[in-house]
Amino acid sequence: MKQVSPIFKREFLGYFRSPVAYVFLVAFLVMSVSLAFSRYGGFFKGGVAGMESYFGFFPWLLLFIVPAVGMRLWSEEKRSGTVELLFTLPITTLEAVLGKFLAGWAFLTLAILLSFPMALTVAWLGRPDWGIVVSTYLGAILMAGGYLGVCALTSALTKNQVISFVLSLGACAILLFLGFSSFTATLEGFLPIAAADALANFSFITHFDAFTKGVIDPKDVVFFLSLMGFTLFLNVVALER
């Protein structure tokens, strides 16, 4: 497993060797903050010293933002031929998959944590419940990892980044929509109720909601971690086939 670190390092620094990282970080922060201050976010109107108005959009925002980070993970290597270089170096597929995934996750974590001025603003305006703030950050980071696992997998299936992006977006959207009663009601139309209920448990929104209320339920943590584990396993399989 010690081969994970050079892969991680190269991939993580790779974001900053091109304008990708800076464009991404700025776009993400501008979008997330302006949504919070918009009439839909209602940061001021809510009159609450909390970050709900900021994180409320996260499941939606990450739906678009994470595929933008994840689409290149493997597609780019396949397109440029470096995948041949990578897999003739003395590393296992698992080490490569982990190194690249963790680098992407660390980058997303950085993007999420860079919203700290929001937290400082809230602290200056009122007295937020720091427990809730911390648990929400944790939930957001875990949710980003869940999305990224899906995106890394779809990226390993194609060398075309556009296809990779669209596939990721589709897969992530399903995981998001499973939380809406209208969507699950449609599922119940042609699936047994038990199956539809089981599927609804895979929704990102329901699992993320608990974190925004200050509840760190092991069930939710395990959900995101096992989703990451499962998608990374499939990622290894997809690359080795």
């Binding site: 190269r10 790779g14 060797r17 091109s18 440029s80 031929g81 470096t82 041949e84 270089l85």
Partner: peptide
């Protein structure tokens, strides 16, 4: 054709 990470 000697693939390498172009941005490095």
């Amino acid at each position: 054709s000697a693939p390498a990470y172009g941005e490095m």
